[in-house]
Amino acid sequence: MRAAVAEGVNAPLSLIERDVPDPGAGEVLVKVTACGVCYSDLNLLQGKYAFARFPVIPGHEVTGVVTAVGDGVTFPEVGTTVGAQFLYDSCGHCNYCVRGEQILCPRKRITGVVTDGGYAEYAVFKAGFVTPLPSGLDPVQAAPLMCAGITAYNGLRHAGATPNSRVAVIGAGGIGTLAIRYAVAMGARVAVVGRSRRGEDAAKAMGAELYVSTDESPAAETLKTWDGGADVILNAAPSSTAAAETLGGLAPDGTLILCGYSAYPLSLPVQPMVLNRLRVMASPSGSPHDLRDTLAFSAQHQILPAITAITLDEAPETLDAMAAGRARGGRGVITFA
């Protein structure tokens, strides 16, 4: 099989031939249909994950078809179309795992970072950590839902987004665009925060009622005039500063949730937080049950991301464009014939 391998930090991807792996006990072999190219893959190559293990095949936004199963596997069956996510597996016995919150397991392993992922024609995954795709979801377009989708949907749920709540989304990239569409489908009122007016028409087309350009006015001040402020602010931008500067736009009892961040420390004004009972939290993707919910909601409301289909050979070029801020045309998704 063909695969792209990350040999180390700041090293180019190597396109190689490798034997198709065999699934072990409790594992499934998946013939990969598609794999999204995520900014986390770029973080891996840039050395931002101290726990990474090289060499490794990147990719954690994977869809494909189960072609073989290891000992003890009765589900999913051969022939099932599945998705594999950021979370590869967990210990299975800690307090978080037994509650179904495997994403919080201290011994969790991350797909495409410490174990081989989807930049390959075939990949092996743990049977309990792949999720069958609902009917109606195209497996190529659905690939980014395995990370960007679950991060946005789960973030909104944990932050308390409800029908008629006011939800502001900072940034309208991969996660942000899905967060806007999910929030609208949940029945929330939505505002979008961007640097310029360039994204206003697209945001309004997705159902946003308010667009805030930070080039024209501070986001916090504008959001505060939106019937008293946002109940939820979801930061999808790769900037901790942008999140902190928007905190003042929360209504009392509001929540700022970080789905995007940068290396800079998060500096927050304590007194307004105390006086208004504000909360700040983060959302690290999700557990298998969260992915199942994300895919079901996406299928029900036909929420799929805009993508650009690419070949495995084009993956290095796509990552270079992302690093240089030149990525355009929707999330890059590697497809395999």
Rank of each mutant, 00 (worst) to 15 (best):
L312T: 07
L29S: 01
T294L: 04
P132E: 04
P23H: 07
A172S: 14
D201Y: 05
G325Y: 10
R107G: 07
E121G: 05
C94I: 05
V5T: 10
G112D: 06
R331D: 10
R279N: 13
G171A: 06
M146V: 06
P23W: 00
T308Y: 06
E101F: 13
V69C: 11
V5W: 03
T63C: 06
D313Q: 13
R331Y: 08
G117E: 06
R109C: 00
V130H: 02
R189G: 01
Q46L: 14
G155N: 01
C91F: 04
A315Y: 02
T214L: 07
H158A: 12
T255F: 03
P76L: 07
E317Q: 15
G149K: 08
G286W: 05
V140F: 12
K204L: 15
C105A: 09
T318I: 14
M206C: 00
Q46K: 15
G64F: 01
G174V: 02
V114R: 12
P55G: 10
L247I: 12
A203H: 03
A52W: 05
A25L: 01
A296K: 10
H93T: 13
A202W: 07
P316K: 10
A168M: 00
P21R: 10
A183K: 02
Q141L: 13
L133N: 04
P269L: 09
N43D: 14
